[in-house]
């Protein structure tokens, strides 16, 4: 399949916005490791932007407690199109350890992230290894190209 310059450029320079939605901060540390020398993500042209308006990839970590749930949606809407969202870590995908054993909803958790925003790529792990996050981002790029 031939790709236009537009589609190529999208995959060549994705900028990431990291949204921390509760959780234990472990995924955040692994994400920081992704941008540190050992798993340098900048070799793929990926940059970490602290500004939703500049970003293409919305990377969420954490189970999204009730207090942060509406804000998460609002920040997601601030990303200009085209955009993709990655749920990083078990908490973001299902709620992880914050779920109750009897499958009833936890009183403090506003959802797994999929309830709040449309998710495109799932990166399981608690925390996911940096390579796993990189693989997730690579999958997200394939989606981003065709947005």
């Amino acid at each position: 399949m031939r790709l236009g310059l537009k589609e190529k450029a999208r995959a060549y320079s994705p900028w990431i916005f990291h949204a921390h939605a509760g959780g234990c901060n472990n995924c955040d540390i692994e994400l920081a490791a992704c941008f540190a020398p050992r798993f340098d993500l900048e070799r793929m042209g990926i940059q970490l932007r602290n500004n939703p308006r500049h970003a293409d990839i919305f990377l969420v970590t954490g189970p999204a407690p009730k207090q942060i749930a509406p804000i998460l949606r609002r920040v997601y809407d601030q990303l200009p199109n085209p955009k993709v969202a990655i749920a990083c870590g078990s908490c973001a995908i299902t709620g992880g350890v914050y779920n109750r054993d009897d499958k009833k909803p936890n009183y403090a958790i506003g959802g797994p992230v999929e309830k709040l925003i449309p998710i495109d790529v799932l990166v399981p792990g608690c925390p996911p290894r940096p390579e796993s996050i990189i693989q997730g981002i690579m999958l997200a790029l394939e989606k981003l190209r065709h947005r």
Partner: peptide, 11 residues
Amino acid sequence: EFEMSKKGQSA
């Protein structure tokens, strides 16, 4: 084996 990322909308 750790590369378990997948495309998908829900859990």
